[in-house]
């Protein structure tokens, strides 16, 4: 049997994953093949999702947008449907790696891998996104805010694949994705996704814990106080309190904790400037 298997339907793909316990699903391969090359992972097979038509494309649904798991970063970075409070997703997609890797990597792969420092998680948590997971038993939707459970651990079961990301319909209010990184295209040292929401904001912090950090309580407390620097500082501090950053080559844990309130304040002021 080939090492790379190329099913044509989702049913076939999850069937193969159920049948072959040591196989891994592969979407764009940008992270998976890099990990294979570094001998970090071992698999009996890669089940390529690239040939499954239903995983491609971005479609409007009754409730908003459905982004197929095989949608490449380059497509999202150029997607006209991502306006208003969804424009942060477009901004984030355009900051992943470089143009060539953006032709390869996919949103389904990125969400499936759940690298804490990757760009989509914070944006999707901020955007009230749901992850569509499909296995042999069918599909289920999981809120992005619940999806990541530990470092590289998610609610996705081994035999499941990320078939789509669901987002509410775009609202005509500003949103911004701020990323601090050593050089353009690097993983984030810290990142903040921020969207206007009436007289408040929705905010999620990335790369500062095992998953994106969002606090609806803190958001409620900030409502109506977006011009009050003391309230904004308290909001940033509340998010930093929820963070659990690593020490690594991109920065120390302490540095990241200090970045959070500043980046959050900067993102909120970006939005005020765009009103």
């Amino acid at each position: 049997m080939s090492f790379v298997l190329s099913p044509r339907t989702v049913e076939e793909a999850v069937g193969l994953l159920a049948e072959l316990p040591d196989a891994l699903p592969m979407s764009g391969g940008a992270s998976l093949v890099a990990m294979k090359n570094a001998r970090l992972i071992e698999a009996s097979h890669f089940v390529s999702l690239a040939g499954i038509a239903s995983l491609h494309g971005i479609t409007a649904t009754d409730t908003g947008l459905r982004i197929g798991g095989m949608t490449r970063h380059a497509q999202l970075a150029a997607c006209d449907l991502l306006t208003g409070d969804l424009s942060m997703l477009r901004q984030a997609a355009g900051q992943i790696a470089n143009r060539v890797v953006r032709n390869m990597g996919t949103i389904g792969g990125a969400v499936g891998n759940a690298d804490p420092a990757a760009d989509y998680l914070a944006v999707l948590a901020c955007g009230d996104a749901h992850v569509e997971l499909t296995g042999t038993e069918g599909s289920r939707l999981v809120a992005m805010t619940d999806y990541v459970t530990d470092w590289y651990e998610t609610l996705r079961e081994p035999g499941e694949i990320v078939t789509a990301i669901h987002l509410p319909a775009a609202r005509p209010v500003p949103s911004v994705y701020r990323k601090l990184c050593r050089v353009p295209g690097d993983y984030a040292t810290a990142s903040v996704a921020c969207a206007s929401d009436g007289d408040g904001v929705r905010v999620a912090v990335g790369a500062c814990g095992h998953g994106p950090i969002r606090s609806r309580e803190a958001e409620a407390a900030l409502r109506g106080n977006l011009r009050d620097p003391v309230a904004i500082a308290a909001f940033g501090a509340a998010l930093a309190d929820l963070a659990d950053p690593v020490d690594d080559v991109r920065g120390t844990s302490e540095f990241r904790l200090r970045l959070i309130p500043r980046m959050v304040a900067a993102a909120i002021s970006d939005l005020e400037g765009k009103r």
Partner: peptide
Amino acid sequence: GRLGKYGLGLMKKKAES
């Protein structure tokens, strides 16, 4: 070796848990 390259930051989190 291969795991050392992967990032001690994350390994430390894992070791703590």
